[in-house]
Design a protein around this nucleic acid. Sequence first.
DNA 1: CGAAAGACTTGGAACAATCTTC
DNA 2: GAAGATTGTTCCAAGTCTTTCG
Length: 376
Amino acid sequence: PHGKPLRYDGENLHLEPEIEEIATFYAAKLGTEHAKKKTFNQNFFADFKRAMRKHNSKYSGIIKDFKKCDFSVIRAHLDAVKAQQKDMRPCERKAIREAEAARVAKYQVAIVDGREEKVGNYRVEPPGLFLGRGEHPLAGKVKRRILPEDVTINIGEQETPPECPLPGHRWKKIVHEHSVTWLAFWRDSITSGFKYVWLGAGSAFKGMSDHSKFEKARKLHGVIGHVRAEYRRAWKSKDLSEQQRAVATYLIDVLALRVGNEKSEDEADTVGCCSLRFEHVKLERPSTLRLDFLGKDSIRYVNSVSVDPAVFACLQRFLNGKKNGDDVFDLVTVTSLNDYLRGFMDGLSGKVFRTYNASVTLDRLLQDTAGRDRVV
DNA sequence: CGAAAGACTTGGAACAATCTTC
DNA sequence: GAAGATTGTTCCAAGTCTTTCG
């Protein structure tokens, strides 16, 4: 606790440590794009008030209006701390850095099947405000502190579990799972999703996985002709769901779209191929498809492409009678699409097309470069 | 069977380090 | 040697997809 006050309606309020910490999370985000968003501020303030009630803060009844909160004193303190660190002499900075490196060294390696491997993320995520990307409905909520009681450790039966770093605490559970590659996990307090501790990118597990990914893409090269012939045929199918599946596969193949799994209400409204809606698609005669949607990370995808006339006709049919909010591919699910793709080749799924597409592109660029006698 | 759980990859943002440039 | 540009690294949100469950 730094003891710096929150100014509220002109008064200096010295908050209890738990409350002060949350106010400090917000102060750190002052001036960023996040703090300009209504959802972010609303979610933050709701959690801030909830924390005051939970900790029986004496300010619970006082701090009622976000607009009267002034975090600038706390912010000035954060800025001062940062400036102080910046002003430190280089040798002093180096000493601190080296001491920290020595402290964490033992957490950065794991022995796997007798080999020493680097651990990727050996720290749990610190508490703070959930940021999110795009218009995320949970942005600004307080991400709580992870304690040893939240963490499950995966280790060999014969091995001694790592010592719990917090005195008086203990790990949630010690397990011995041989079929997975994670070393530990906890649940995220915002999304309730799983957060894992993995080995580093240079580890055998990650390397093998990466290798098999590219081998899959290479194998796709052998059957891509068959896949294309098959979906072209299915554009003319009498079965509308087969038609939809064939057009979706075509878009994933030629535009390298992501498949687009379903998302919940608690996430940003973004889409991929299978979740494209009426409003994301425009058809311009004679055969131009215009796509405009927010994809992964709420990044806008805008593209106008000339498509095969048969695809154009299919899309006209799919959109017929639909309105904003309706799925373009209402008869296709990601699962059904991937089941169909697996029929062509073991392990084939939508995302393999992206790896394939990128690999073919890189290969072509390398060929061009090699042709001009360049060293690569 | 659809939904939820679970495990893994992907990739942007934030931050840190280093490299110009004046 | 400060400031700004560039590059590298870490963090963690946001995807994919298979397996398990009710």
